[in-house]
């Protein structure tokens, strides 16, 4: 059952992105920024977490889930270490994802040459 929920919710979030691309001519870079920021705000308001609880990876794998993670991290850090958490929370929560992305990108750049489309 959780697979079906992940499939449907994840799919719907992507369809929202697709409609934005086709209708507003937003570039993919802007879509990425928009979705992370939106996820962070929704997460801050406590609206996104219930969706993650319901759909699991269907809500945490799309980029709003990444934004939600940032909001969650900030809140946790503030609870633990006070005002300093405002500065550290976002980076702490997203550290694993960002480090994995840039390190593996760097390794790929060592291995592969640019390819044609």
């Amino acid at each position: 059952m959780d697979y079906i929920k992940a499939f449907v919710v994840g799919g719907i979030i992507c369809v929202i992105g697709q409609i934005l691309i086709d209708k507003t001519k937003l570039t993919s870079a802007r879509i990425l920024v928009l979705f992370v920021v939106l996820g962070c705000i929704l997460g801050g308001l406590g609206i996104y977490q219930p969706l993650v609880d319901f759909a699991g990876a269907g809500a945490s794998v799309p980029l709003p889930g990444f934004g939600n993670l940032l909001a969650k991290g900030v809140k946790q850090e503030i609870d633990q270490s006070g005002a300093l958490g405002i500065l550290t929370g976002g980076f702490k929560a997203s550290a694993a994802g960002i480090s994995a992305a840039i390190v593996s990108a760097f390794i790929m750049s060592l291995i592969f040459d640019p390819k044609e489309k």
Binding site: S28, P114, K115, E116, K117
Partner: peptide, 20 residues
Amino acid sequence: HFCSAEKQFRFPLELGTQRP
């Protein structure tokens, strides 16, 4: 050249985007 033009004017070739 398609590839040099894309690289200069748009995005890296491997970025997964759709062309309108």
